[in-house]
Simulated scan of single mutants.
Amino acid sequence: MLSTNDLNQIQQRGITQQQVEHQLEQIKAGFPFLRIEAAAAIGHGIMAPDDVQRDKYVTDWKQYLEEGHKVVKFVPASGAASRMFKNLFAFLSADYDVPTTDFEKHFFDNINKFAFKKELCAKCKANTGLSVCKLIEAGRYKDVVANLLEAKGLNYGQLPKGLLLFHKYEQGPRTPMEEHLVEAALYASSDGEANIHFTVSHEHLELFKGKVAEKLESFEKLYNIRLNVSFSEQKPSTDTIAANPDNTPFRNEDGTLLFRPGGHGALIENLNDIDADVVFIKNIDNVVPDRIKADTVLYKKVLAGILVDAQKKAFEYLR
């Protein structure tokens, strides 16, 4: 199944042949479900602080920040967006040309609501001479999808989730990466600074740096804060081989094996390199627009207050 070239490619990534074969066997056999003891409930894995307790934890976190501790927001951002668009990829390769499935119909019925609509329209005009609406009127639905997913257009089929336009604002759309900069300013800053660290894949590092360079100053002015942004790369040795439906290795057009970034557990080494007193960890696409950010900010502060309370007790015991 694996050629000499395959073995060389595997070795160059810092992975062993046995690891790849084990991954393929896991894909073939499937993964067992976790054994669940009970549903999480208040008092059984879930805390439910009342208003007084909640305010206390928020105050504890505020005092902790005023003491000058270093806080870092750690964001795994290596995830590719290709799985988000699997239904649209299926439409592109389908033997029909008009929206047929419920998903396809819903996508085109709501296309004007997407944050990327304006940019998609510009790509469609550049490549076909027609806007998104005109292409739809002409029944050229696949041209719209191709300009969304392929390199000639927005290339969303190959970009990481952190660089897709997610939310609409009057000032312009934002990517998830930008939303995390905002969150860092709102609940993870001290001494007028906020530190945020993104783990990214090597091929997307310069794209992330470019987006930060483009947007950083505006967010610093908006929140009157200095944002210190850093990056690290997920190690190739933690990637997972991709497989076909028949469980054979999936190959690129040039015959090489395709590897996908491993899960967030693969980032434990990156996390271990972070020097901070408190680290917030949050997935790149777990973001909301400003109009509903208040709860996110409040309960991040509550969680942080609970943490520093526990930390204080632990330090007392040590002393």
Rank of each mutant, 00 (worst) to 15 (best):
155 N>E: 10
89 F>I: 05
278 V>N: 02
222 L>W: 04
45 G>R: 00
129 G>L: 10
10 I>Q: 04
209 K>E: 14
187 Y>F: 14
284 I>N: 03
188 A>S: 14
116 F>G: 04
200 V>W: 05
274 I>Y: 05
210 G>E: 03
70 K>R: 15
127 N>F: 06
261 P>Q: 01
117 K>F: 13
88 L>W: 01
167 H>G: 01
204 H>M: 09
283 N>S: 10
191 D>G: 10
234 Q>V: 07
192 G>D: 09
78 S>F: 08
111 I>F: 07
45 G>S: 07
166 F>G: 03
256 T>R: 11
52 V>N: 13
313 K>M: 14
215 K>S: 00
36 I>Q: 11
39 A>N: 15
318 L>D: 13
162 G>S: 07
317 Y>A: 12
153 G>R: 01
257 L>E: 11
254 D>Y: 10
250 F>W: 12
202 H>I: 09
262 G>C: 11
111 I>Y: 08
188 A>K: 07
283 N>D: 07
310 A>W: 06
87 N>W: 06
28 K>C: 08
242 A>F: 02
310 A>N: 14
83 R>E: 14
200 V>T: 02
306 I>Q: 03
240 T>G: 11
200 V>A: 02
169 Y>T: 04
279 V>Q: 03
87 N>A: 13
219 F>K: 08
130 L>G: 00
112 N>D: 12
152 K>R: 15
43 G>E: 05
102 D>I: 12
167 H>E: 14
34 L>D: 11
45 G>I: 04
